Amino acid sequence: MSGIALSRLAQERKAWRKDHPFGFVAVPTKNPDGTMNLMNWECAIPGKKGTPWEGGLFKLRMLFKDDYPSSPPKCKFEPPLFHPNVYPSGTVCLSILEEDKDWRPAITIKQILLGIQELLNEPNIQDPAQAEAYTIYCQNRVEYEKRVRAQAKKFAPS
């Protein structure tokens, strides 16, 4: 494992614990031996107030490669969400998460999670990743928002 990646992720964890947006979660997972795995984080993004996503808490896994922060983490909703920019596998399609697009090593975990929260309610229809959600979003916004509200209710924190 890269010392650069681990040191950056340790800084990220410290900064997150000191200050993070209300309702968001970002925690490194534990290895079988109980030690912390900084390369694999369990996160959760709350649906934004005043949107059909409100009330939901959407679980996301963030996986970092050894060359982080040169390369972005892979962000994957578990379980996958109904959304035009979420692949059926759950992987998020967002330009700041793509090395050859808008990724920059200075982007923080907090910025990534806030960017994904923004994307939930403002899909990028130029870059669809899920045919069904994309089609319904474009053709029947009322039905799309109904499905999103049902999903938010399903993923409401207990």
Rank of each mutant, 00 (worst) to 15 (best):
L60T: 09
S70I: 14
E78A: 11
V92G: 01
P105E: 10
E143S: 13
G23C: 00
D67F: 15
D102I: 06
K59S: 12
K14P: 01
S95C: 06
V92S: 09
S71Q: 12
K48M: 10
R149P: 05
E99K: 11
L119N: 04
A106C: 10
T135L: 12
L120T: 07
M62R: 00
Q139H: 11
A156T: 11
V92K: 01
I96C: 03
V148N: 01
I109N: 02
Y134V: 08
Y137N: 00
R141Y: 10
Y134P: 05
Q139P: 07
I125V: 11
N31H: 11
G23R: 04
L63S: 14
P157T: 11
I136V: 09
E78K: 15
E145N: 15
Y137V: 00
P105M: 09
N121V: 13
N124L: 00
I96P: 01
Y68I: 02
V25M: 10
Q117H: 13
G50W: 05
D127C: 00
E122L: 10
N40T: 09
T135H: 04
I125H: 03
R147D: 01
D66V: 07
N31G: 07
P157F: 12
R141A: 10
P52R: 09
F155Q: 14
P52Y: 11
R8V: 14
P72N: 13
P88I: 15
A152H: 02
E118K: 10
D19K: 06
F64N: 06
R17C: 01
A152E: 03
K153C: 09
E122H: 10
N124E: 03
H20Y: 03
V92T: 07
S95H: 00
G56D: 02
P128T: 08
L97S: 09
K74P: 08
F24Y: 12
I116P: 02
I109Q: 05
L113G: 04
S71D: 15
E132Y: 07
P105K: 00
L81C: 05
K154D: 12
Q111S: 15
P21T: 02
P157A: 13
V27K: 13
R61Q: 11
V92N: 00
G47Y: 10
I4L: 08
A5N: 12
I45C: 14
I136E: 12
D102M: 12
F64V: 12
C43Y: 05
P79W: 14
E145W: 07
T91R: 09
E118R: 11
F58L: 05
P123N: 01
G50N: 15
P80T: 12
K76R: 14
A131E: 09
Q117V: 06
P46H: 07
I109R: 04
R17M: 03
I125G: 02
C43D: 07
L119Q: 02
N40R: 09
I109W: 08
P32Q: 14
N31A: 08
V142T: 13
N140H: 09
E145K: 08
P128K: 00
P32M: 14
F155K: 06
I96F: 04
C93T: 00
M39W: 09
S7D: 06
A156F: 11
E99F: 09
G90Y: 12
V142R: 14
I109F: 08
K14A: 02
A15P: 01
Q111A: 14
T29D: 10
F155H: 09
D100Q: 11
R13W: 01
Y137T: 10
F82L: 05
E132S: 08
R147P: 04
G34D: 10
P80I: 07
P80G: 13
L94S: 08
A131T: 14
N124Y: 09
R149H: 10
W16H: 04
Y144A: 00
E98M: 13
A131D: 08
G50A: 11
E42A: 13
K101S: 13
Y144L: 02
P88Q: 15
P72S: 10
V27S: 08
I109D: 03
E98S: 15
Q130W: 13
L114F: 11
E132Q: 09
K153R: 13
F64L: 11
R13C: 01
P73W: 02
K153N: 14
E143H: 10
A10K: 15
A133T: 05
P69Y: 01
F24M: 10
G3R: 06
G56F: 00
N40P: 06
C75W: 06
K101N: 15
Q11S: 11
K74W: 02
Y87L: 03
F22S: 04
F24P: 00
P88N: 08
M36P: 02
V25H: 09
R17F: 02
Y137R: 03
E143K: 10
Q11M: 13
A131M: 06
A10E: 01
V86M: 12
T108A: 15
E98R: 07
L63A: 11
G34K: 07
E98T: 08
I116A: 15
V148M: 02
P88H: 14
E12M: 06
K48D: 03
L57F: 08
I109T: 07
Y137D: 02
P80V: 07
G115N: 01
S95R: 01
